[in-house]
Amino acid sequence: MHGEYKVHGGKLVVADLEVVDGAMSAVQIAGDFFLEPAEALNDICLSLEGMPVESSVEDITSKLKKSLPEGAALIGFSLEAIAIAVRRALGVSKSWRDYEWQIIDSEAVSPAMHLALDDVLANEVASGRRAPTLRFWEWDRAAVIVGAFQSLKNEVDLQAAEELNVEIVRRVTGGGAMFVEKGTAITYSLYAPTDLVADMSFADSYAFLDNWVLKALNGLGIDAYYKPLNDITSSKGKIGGAAQKRYHRNTVLHHVTMAYDMDAAKMMQVLRIGREKLSDKGTASAAKRVDPVRSQTGMERRAVIDQMKETFVSLNGGREGQITPEEYAAAEKLVKEKFSTKEWLHHIP
């Protein structure tokens, strides 16, 4: 039985093993990692012999910790990474290729409709009526999208937003406010089974679910990397941010907005970006936080999205999909009942 796990920003860990009478046997751990002393690898493999196949990541990690000699150094990987590789070999932990992904790249809709579609499609995946899905958004107007737990008056200059005809909506995920205009951002959502990230911490799942897009950006010449908890950034500044919500314990909504060619001056007019937040990002002004994908690639926005889709398919598989009429209808109903209501927008004034 064979399993692999690529550590985000690190090395590949490979587990090969057999199962005899419900227990692990002939366990071999390999990979392109570094380990000192080298003899510790034999200790790692021997410690897993005879462990029950139903062992959790925590069980495996605990056993591995006891096996390591004092002062052992694991470079480019971790004991948790070994545990995930082992569970993948056992068929307990899933990888991207275990699912038949659909990729949706559909027409522009209103900001509220996008938020409703996120809710509907996540629930459809949770119910088993829809396959795991990657959806790219098209914005049809300028908007500010505030996080689920943000204070509206603290984050948005409501008068400026009205004067500039910028719509304000609230999403179901946490995180910070985003400013978008038509054709200026690249936004996508993943509706994924939680089995894909079941063996990871909540924080680690962010980087894992966006690893494919980092590879796509790297392929376009951007030295993109992940900055915990939820920022995609580069040596030239922040590119985008991610947010998550878990549905019914079996589906995760993970969505990201990246700046392509944003109007920083307008963004600063409508968003109240405080000094504390800016100091946390290590920048002196809000404008410097917007580092558009366009300036680093010189490519048209659609060409960047096409490259992202190609990278996802090459790494994880996938085929073209569509939003069904029933899903659109359910989202329209949700817009009226929730996402376009003052009660939802102002529930944290």
Results as ranks from 00 to 15, higher is better:
87 R>D: 08
89 A>P: 03
91 G>A: 14
92 V>R: 13
98 D>V: 11
99 Y>T: 11
100 E>L: 12
101 W>P: 09
101 W>R: 11
102 Q>K: 15
102 Q>W: 04
109 V>N: 08
109 V>M: 09
110 S>F: 07
110 S>E: 15
111 P>E: 06
113 M>A: 12
113 M>C: 07
114 H>P: 00
117 L>Y: 07
119 D>V: 01
120 V>Q: 03
121 L>S: 00
124 E>M: 12
129 R>C: 05
129 R>N: 13
129 R>A: 14
131 A>R: 15
131 A>F: 07
132 P>V: 09
133 T>A: 06
133 T>G: 02
134 L>Q: 08
137 W>K: 01
138 E>Q: 15
141 R>F: 01
141 R>G: 10
143 A>R: 01
143 A>I: 02
149 F>Q: 11
149 F>V: 05
150 Q>S: 10
151 S>T: 10
153 K>H: 13
154 N>H: 11
157 D>E: 08
158 L>D: 02
160 A>E: 14
160 A>G: 04
161 A>L: 08
162 E>H: 07
164 L>I: 01
164 L>N: 12
165 N>I: 02
165 N>T: 09
166 V>F: 04
169 V>N: 06
170 R>D: 04
175 G>E: 03
175 G>W: 03
176 G>N: 08
177 A>L: 05
178 M>Y: 11
178 M>C: 04
179 F>K: 01
180 V>M: 05
182 K>S: 13
185 A>V: 14
189 S>C: 08
190 L>V: 07
191 Y>L: 02
192 A>Y: 00
194 T>Q: 04
195 D>N: 10
198 A>K: 15
200 M>Q: 13
201 S>K: 12
201 S>H: 08
203 A>T: 14
